[in-house]
Simulated scan of single mutants.
Amino acid sequence: MADEPATTRFLNVDLDLRARSGLAELVRALEPTMSVMNHHGDFASLELHEQPEDIDDAMRRFVELIHALPPEVRALWDGCESRQMNIGIQAGAEPHSIGFGLSFHSMRLLVGIGAEVEFIVYGARSCANAPEALTPRGEP
């Protein structure tokens, strides 16, 4: 039985933060609503507890969580050097081409919280015994 070709698909969105100070306090405030994937020194990577339906759903949920922060924690968010939404896409053999984008509404929401966007595309697997797709931060 031949293996079906892998399908190109949206994986998830990671929120990557860099801050010279206050990052540990910000991460603690976000932990009840987000999973901490990585945190060391001036860098933290988080993702939503529940898998979003699509990219726009993820952006809307992240923005809602940031808007809900108390003012003192929001000041820590605003003080971050970098607030980047990393959109993970797993490439596959099918379809030949597919688009992944952000709606105008999502872009406006992200600008409102000072967030940047990066698309990360993971290469298609070429053989059936290749490891499963990696998470957006390169972890199995």
Rank of each mutant, 00 (worst) to 15 (best):
C80W: 02
C127G: 01
H96P: 00
A44T: 09
G88C: 02
G123H: 07
R20D: 11
F43E: 14
D78F: 04
P131L: 03
M59A: 14
A91N: 15
A133T: 05
D14K: 07
R20S: 10
L69E: 09
R20K: 08
L23A: 03
A75F: 03
R74S: 11
M85L: 15
C80K: 14
G92W: 03
I87W: 14
H39G: 07
V117I: 13
S103Y: 09
I120L: 12
P140M: 06
S103D: 01
E31S: 12
M107L: 10
D57H: 15
A2L: 09
P5I: 00
E139G: 07
Q90V: 02
E47K: 13
V73A: 12
E118M: 10
L76C: 07
E53G: 12
H96E: 01
L11Q: 12
D56C: 00
W77L: 03
D42V: 02
G138V: 00
F62I: 07
T33Q: 10
F62H: 13
V13W: 06
F10C: 05
E25K: 09
N12F: 03
L46W: 13
V63C: 14
I98T: 11
P52D: 09
Q84N: 14
G88D: 13
R61I: 01
S126L: 14
L76F: 07
F104Q: 14
N86G: 08
H39V: 07
A124D: 04
H67Q: 13
E64H: 13
A93R: 13
R83H: 12
E118W: 05
D56I: 02
V73N: 09
D78R: 11
R83P: 08
D78E: 15
R60D: 15
P136V: 10
L30E: 04
R74P: 00
I113Y: 01
V36S: 06
E47N: 09
V63K: 02
F10R: 00
V13C: 10
S35H: 10
A128E: 09
E139S: 09
R28K: 11
A115T: 09
E25M: 06
G123P: 10
L15Y: 11
R9T: 06
I113M: 10
P136N: 02
C127I: 04
R60Q: 14
F100R: 08
E64V: 12
H49R: 06
P136R: 05
V36T: 14
S35G: 04
P95L: 00
G41H: 12
A115Q: 05
G138A: 02
E132K: 12
I66A: 00
M107G: 03
A124F: 02
P52K: 12
R18C: 04
L26K: 01
P70T: 14
F10E: 03
A115R: 08
E72L: 10
S21G: 07
Y122S: 09
E72T: 15
D42P: 08
G88A: 09
E47V: 07
V121C: 08
P5V: 00
G79R: 05
G99K: 04
G138I: 02
P70Q: 14
I87C: 03
P131F: 06
G99R: 13
A130I: 00
S97D: 00
E64L: 13
A29E: 05
V13P: 06
L30Q: 08
S35P: 03
S82C: 06
H49T: 07
D54M: 01
V73R: 14
A24P: 00
A6D: 11
A128I: 05
D3G: 11
P136L: 00
V36R: 12
A24K: 11
G99I: 04
N129R: 07
T8G: 01
H40I: 06
V73G: 08
